[in-house]
């Protein structure tokens, strides 16, 4: 099963700590000073409507619409998650339109190449931009670790089994109450 981060709307207080942690976890070590409004692109977003506050991010679907929609096979299943091979991304935005959760985006970054000690500018490079579960970060998903109300959880097979077990128990309990 693919792992993914879920948010519990009955715990989220809409504080956006997760957004900043996510942006920082992908700042190549630049730290907070590298953050600015124009370039702030967290892969998790707090959404606030009249009745709900919660965070939304990639579900790492098992049969992912973005993977299916990509004409250049840039999105792949790897390490029990959905990952983007950025060198293959064309920036065509098929995946953006295909994602039912609105959590895939295409961003552009300055493209450079180093050649014989010189840095050449190559215009811009497109990137399909979404939660990568912080692969490569030793401490795991950054958003999960900072959320002050523990609204975020990393769901892997084990956590999922535990959730399902509790739900089934509750269902049995409720069934018994109805029967009684």
């Amino acid at each position: 099963m693919n792992r993914f981060v879920t948010a519990n709307p009955s715990k989220c207080i809409g504080c956006r700590t997760c957004e900043v942690a996510c942006a920082l976890a992908h700042s190549d070590g630049a730290g907070v000073e590298g953050l600015a409004p124009d370039t702030f692109k967290p892969r998790i977003r707090m959404v606030r409507t009249a009745d709900v506050s919660t965070a939304v991010m990639c579900h790492h679907c098992e049969d992912a619409p973005c993977v299916n929609a990509c004409p250049n096979n840039a999105i792949v299943y790897r390490q029990n998650s959905v990952q983007v091979e950025q060198e293959r991304c064309l920036g065509c935005k098929n995946c953006v339109l295909a994602c039912p959760f609105g959590v895939m985006d295409v961003v552009t970054v300055p493209a450079v190449r180093s050649f014989a000690g010189m840095t050449l500018s190559l215009g811009v490079k497109a990137q399909a931009h979404k939660c990568d579960l912080c692969v490569g970060r030793d401490a795991g998903p950054a958003c999960v670790s900072v959320c002050p109300t523990s609204a975020l959880t990393l769901m892997d097979r084990e956590a999922m089994d535990e959730t399902l077990r509790r739900r089934r128990e509750r269902a049995a309990q409720e069934a018994a109450e109805v029967a009684a």
Binding site: C15, R16, T17, V20, A21, E33, V146, P148
Partner: peptide
């Protein structure tokens, strides 16, 4: 063991940004 947005990311003013 918890901090909020300001607790985590509110320190750099010390560095005279």
């Amino acid at each position: 063991g918890e901090l909020c947005l300001k607790g985590y990311f509110g320190y750099d003013f010390i560095n005279d940004t």
